[in-house]
Amino acid sequence: MDWIRPIVVTMLGAPMSGKTTFLLGMYATMSLGERAYALLEKDQDKDFELGRAWDRLCAEGVLPPPTPEEPFEYRFTFLHGKDPLLRLDWTDFRGGAMTTPLGEANGFIESPDARRLVQRLAATDSVYLVLDGSRLGASPQALETRRMTALVRSALLEREPARPALSVVVLLTKADRLLAELPQHLTITQRLDRALETILGLLPVMRQPGMTAALCPVTVGGFGAPTRGRVDPATVRPFWLHKPVMFTMFHRLREERRLLDAELGSLGARHRHLTAELDRVNGERLGRLLRRAELRGLESERAQVEEAWWVADGRRRMTDHWGATLREEIKELPVFRDGARVESDDL
């Protein structure tokens, strides 16, 4: 589906929230393949570095270092089998970028990545808000989530009207610790519902009109507190690391379907207008004889509209197919659209 431009993804999270470790585990999982889906980093050097960092975590328990002031940028291709479906332009900012002042007013020192973060959010298609599941409800995290909320609302205000609607993934890292504290006889979805009230209190922007948000718990492993940047490698147990990406893809296809519906409606209206004009000219006395050039122009334009309609209809059928397939991958996630909870059958 190369007609769809790359999906711009931006990750926000506090220092030590686990966002870089999630990215490492997500790529390791998806580059190997999840069912028939896979991710591929276009830059082979970056693919190698991501793979080497994952191998060190699995073999030696070495956690990845924090993101530096220069953000990490990736160009992923989302594949089904050998066929490329969608592309992602993914940026991971350092944890402190979202809470760093932008300029030197009031004695603050300007932070280039903080300013770059604000600028990028206006062009972002999917924002990942990373919460540390082991600290859910902690007071410092409440301060961080207020900043996340402000940044998302600012991005919505700056967003160009013609762009696809924004999606938000509330990424609950270290979710094993949170889920373990909830009744074990409940399903994961039921336990998420128990935690949802707290999360909505921290991030009411999940119910912001004009966007779609999903809550996704993920775990790279049952690490506990690291010691000098190391954990027990035997505790590496990835869980649901692929689902956030699946949601981002599903939402983009849903938006593409909406845009294609509008395009098909416009093409259909133009086709009806041209057909009416052709009927009118052909129905006039001597119309076929004296207005041949006009008739040829109308017929040529109608043929072009018909061709464009079939192209758009083929794209719509393709987005329907892959959207329905991806929907099955995210049915367990709590999703809000335009402020209201969406049942899995209505995704």
Rank of each mutant, 00 (worst) to 15 (best):
L136P: 12
S126K: 06
L253V: 06
A213C: 14
T325G: 02
V218G: 02
W309F: 15
D313C: 01
R163G: 04
T227H: 15
L178R: 00
K19A: 10
L274W: 06
K243L: 13
W54R: 09
G229T: 12
L39Q: 10
S167G: 12
T212D: 01
V8C: 04
R120W: 02
R163A: 15
V236S: 04
R5V: 03
G339C: 10
L23W: 04
E307W: 10
A142E: 14
C58L: 12
A114N: 03
L260T: 01
H273F: 11
L241A: 11
A303R: 11
M249Q: 10
T212L: 05
P71I: 00
K331Q: 14
V311M: 09
K42G: 07
A293S: 15
V127D: 01
E197L: 12
A308F: 00
R230E: 10
V9A: 13
T198S: 08
R191W: 06
T248Y: 00
W54G: 04
L253D: 08
Q141R: 03
D232E: 14
L289G: 02
P101F: 09
L39E: 07
D83C: 08
L102R: 06
W54I: 00
P244F: 05
A14C: 04
S134K: 12
T198V: 11
V9H: 12
H80M: 10
A53G: 05
A225R: 15
L326E: 08
G18N: 06
L179V: 11
